[in-house]
Design a protein around this nucleic acid. Structure first.
Length: 472
RNA sequence: GGGCCCUUCGUCUAUCGGUUAGGACGCUAGGUUUUCAACCUGGAAAGAGGGGUUCAACUCCCCUAGGGCCUACCA
């Protein structure tokens, strides 16, 4: 696993206890962007050393989420659990070098020690750090603890600046549990070192861990990576994002109809800035991203802004791709025509116009609905009232005219409608409103000439006939 | 209890000692108008509080307040 090159290497290292939540997605994005910016590698490691809480479905969900977001990782996924023997090896090495020691304290003794340390406002130190190993009780269980360093610690963080701790703030942390399994802080350091990680971008809930981990790096004589601790994302209420409070998985955003590039763009600007620029495509983001633009304060999720950003990316998206993506959203709407190929054809034709009118795929489905509505449909309330006797007579005259319209495209239809309104000597509202009702049944739709062009002559005439015969 | 981190419009942010404190979302007034959306033109809206340092502070320092993280044989 050891690399001899000197390229930038980042990693995303989630623990598989749930889906890929929005904060993790952003952390992954930043690491991905930073690696790509420097032509380096972005690695994925699953921190699955907690066997009780780690699950395969969670591992799958994380990978699916990253894939959906378009954050591709280099090489194979690393399982931290599978590397346990290497962690143990390093722990033993530290015992031999004196940087770690066997602690024979029982759970009760540790509790008492901790309570005392807590009262004194200091970190826990094991009495076994200075005792002769020969005093060890025979056959007693022990943990391997790190011998907390005597020097004060300073971590140069790329976001937070120099962060300092007094030596007494660090406890003798457990490296190996009494069952000899390695703990997080040991495993992380060993893995990041072995994977040649050069930059660690992660949530600032790990800021204190950085101090602890740097003690281990130093003890081992390993070079410390660059740390960049980014603030966590909060919910709309400013509180921590909890699972039951807005902390949704990536797939939830997908199901709400956001595009991966839209979510990526939004997440990019959440806690990172580049002057006044709000909209980024991937190429721009990769060029622009740097650690110096990272913010120190936590930020809140704002779905309105996400939608707005997403709308830009919808308008830029490929038509054929959107036709595919909108299908599941359309499927939820009832009263549609049967023929899938007609539906697909109409939506395809209209897509260049539709996509600029919707902020999400869900809205896109709403915008496309009028195209696939099964006729005849009934008009109610205000729409029905539009079709009084006079209006029906007028629409009948329009009908006759449309039958004779030779060229059926937006341009000629627009001028047909305009001329018709003039010949009727009424404002366009007198024609546009009822005609729209007749053709769309009240569904959202673009300009009428476009509606007619997208629907096609037969469908337009049929929808007119439906309503006019009902009222005559 | 202890340590560490954070604090500019409602929200995301710009500012890196000297600006009428800028932009974006949202909100709002008006325009366009055949629905919805979009779009165009305006508007309201901010430096948590208190001390310093300085000719000058949002910007540097200290205190307070408020949030957050860690303080596990979780990660």
């Amino acid at each position: 696993m050891q690399h001899t090159d000197h390229i930038v290497r980042t990693r995303f290292a989630p623990s598989p206890t749930g889906f890929l939540h929005i904060g993790g997605a952003r952390t992954a994005l930043f690491n991905w962007l930073f690696a790509r910016h420097h032509g380096g590698q972005f690695l994925l490691r699953i921190e699955d050393t907690d066997r009780a809480r780690s699950t395969q479905p969670a591992i799958d969900a994380i990978q699916d989420g990253l894939s959906w977001l378009g954050l591709d990782w280099d090489g194979d996924v690393v399982s931290q659990y599978n590397r346990a023997s290497r962690h143990v090896e390093i722990a033993h090495q530290m015992v031999e070098s004196g940087h770690a020691f066997r602690c024979y304290c029982t759970a009760d003794e540790v509790d008492a020690l901790r309570a005392a340390a807590f009262d004194q406002g200091r970190a826990l130190r094991s009495p076994w750090r200075d005792r002769d190993p020969a005093d060890a009780p025979a056959d007693a269980a022990f943990t391997v603890r790190f011998r907390a360093a005597d020097e004060d610690m300073v971590v140069a963080d790329a976001v937070q600046g120099d962060v300092r701790w007094a030596a007494k703030e660090f406890d003798d942390l457990v490296l190996l549990r009494s069952d000899a399994s390695p703990t997080y802080n040991l495993a992380v350091v060993v893995d990041d070192h072995d994977m040649d990680i050069t930059h660690i971008i992660r949530g600032d809930d790990h800021l204190v861990n950085a101090g602890r981990q740097c003690q281990i790096y130093d003890a081992l004589g390993w070079q410390r990576p660059v740390f960049a601790h980014i603030p966590l994302i909060h919910g709309q209420d400013g509180k921590k994002l909890s699972k039951r409070h807005g902390a949704l998985g990536a797939e939830a955003y997908r199901d709400m109809g956001y595009l991966p590039e839209g979510l990526r763009n939004y997440l990019l600007r959440l806690g990172w800035s580049h002057g006044d620029q709000e909209i980024f495509d991937d190429a721009q983001a990769i060029v622009a991203f740097d650690l110096s633009g990272l913010n120190k304060a936590p930020s809140r999720l704002d779905l309105d802004k996400l939608s707005h950003i997403n709308a830009h990316h919808m308008a830029q998206a490929d038509d054929a791709r959107l036709c595919e993506l909108v299908r599941p959203f359309l499927a939820g709407l009832d009263g549609q025509i049967e023929d899938e190929s007609i539906k697909a054809a109409r939506i395809k034709t209209a897509m260049p116009v539709l996509k600029s009118r919707a902020a999400t795929l869900a809205e896109l489905a709403q915008q496309a609905y009028f195209l696939v509505k099964a006729r005849p449909f009934s008009l109610e309330g205000k729409l029905a009232k539009l079709l009084d006797e006079e209006t029906c007579a007028r629409l009948n005259r329009l009908f006759t005219r449309l039958v004779e319209t030779l060229v059926w495209n937006e341009e000629t239809l627009a001028s047909e409608l305009k001329q018709f309104a003039e010949s009727e000597q009424v404002g366009f509202g007198k024609i546009g409103q009822p005609l729209r009702a007749v053709l769309t049944g009240g569904a959202a739709a673009p300009d009428l000439a476009l509606v007619m062009a997208f629907l096609g002559r037969d469908e337009v005439l049929d929808r007119m006939k439906d309503q006019l015969s009902l009222r005559s």
